[in-house]
C-alpha cells in the first residue's frame, strides 16, 4: 500500500493552528442571504439542485445574523433599507465577510435614482464584488470561492489570542463628512435637528 499522500505514511501531520482554523472556517461559511431584489432569485438558484452550493459547504443559509459569518447582499439597497442592513451586519460575530452580488449592490447599477444607495460599499466593508445583472449562479459561486481563498490566507490566530502582534490601529474611518453646510463634522443629534445644522 502506498503511503498516504497527506500524512506521508506517518499517521499524523503538522501544521499551524491558523492554517487549520482557516481551512475549517473556509469550508463551512454560513451565509446570511440579504436577499433584496432580483439578484436574490439567482441567489436562491445557487442553492438549487443544479448549482448545489452544498459542494462548497455553504448551503446552510442562516437568517439570523448571530449564526452567520458571510453576508451576501443581493439586490439594490435603498436608503431606507441600508440602516437595517448595517444593523444586521453589526450584529454578526467577527470574523465576517461580505459579498456584493450584482451591479446594484456593487455600484447602484441601473438604478441611478434618489432612493438607491450607489453601492453598498458606502456603508459596508465589501470583500468581493460580483458583476452582472443578475450574475449567474456560477458567478456567485465563484465569489464564494474567492471568499474561501481569502479566508484561507488570513492570519487571524495571533490576533485572536492577543499574544502575537497586535492588530494595527484602524485608520480613522471617515475623517470628514461633507454636509450641506460645508465640511463640518456632524453628530447624529444634529442630523435630526436640521435647522441648527
Amino acid at each position: 500500500m502506498a503511503p498516504d499522500p497527506v500524512t506521508g505514511g506517518e499517521g499524523f501531520l503538522t501544521t499551524r493552528v491558523d492554517a487549520v482554523l482557516n481551512w475549517a472556517r473556509s469550508n463551512s461559511l454560513m451565509p446570511m442571504p440579504m436577499g433584496l431584489a432580483c439578484c436574490a432569485i439567482e441567489l436562491m438558484a445557487m442553492a438549487d439542485p443544479k448549482y448545489d452550493v452544498a459542494r462548497f459547504g455553504s448551503e446552510a443559509m442562516r437568517f439570523s445574523p448571530r449564526q452567520a459569518d458571510l453576508m451576501i447582499v443581493a439586490g439594490w439597497v435603498s436608503y431606507k433599507m441600508a440602516h437595517t442592513i448595517r444593523r444586521v451586519w453589526d450584529q454578526m460575530a467577527d470574523p465576517k465577510w461580505c459579498i456584493a452580488v450584482g451591479a446594484c449592490a456593487s455600484t447602484g447599477g441601473m438604478h441611478r435614482c434618489y432612493g438607491v444607495v450607489q453601492g453598498c460599499d458606502n456603508f459596508l466593508p465589501v470583500d468581493v464584488y460580483v458583476s452582472g445583472c443578475p450574475p449567474r449562479p456560477e458567478a456567485i459561486i465563484h465569489a464564494l470561492m474567492d471568499i474561501q481563498e481569502k479566508v484561507r490566507n488570513e492570519y487571524t490566530a495571533a490576533d485572536d489570542s492577543g499574544s502575537g502582534d497586535r492588530r494595527p490601529e484602524p485608520a480613522p474611518l471617515r475623517p470628514r463628512v461633507l454636509t450641506p453646510g460645508g465640511d463640518r463634522v456632524i453628530s447624529p443629534v444634529a442630523l435630526y435637528d436640521q435647522e441648527n445644522l
Binding site: 433584496l36 431584489a37 439586490g75 439594490w76 435603498s78 431606507k80 433599507m81 437595517t84 438604478h111 435614482c113 434618489y114 432612493g115 438607491v116
Partner: peptide, 8 residues
C-alpha cells in the same frame, strides 16, 4: 413597505 423603493 418601501424598502426597495428606487423611484422607477
Amino acid at each position: 413597505i418601501g424598502f426597495l423603493h428606487r423611484g422607477i
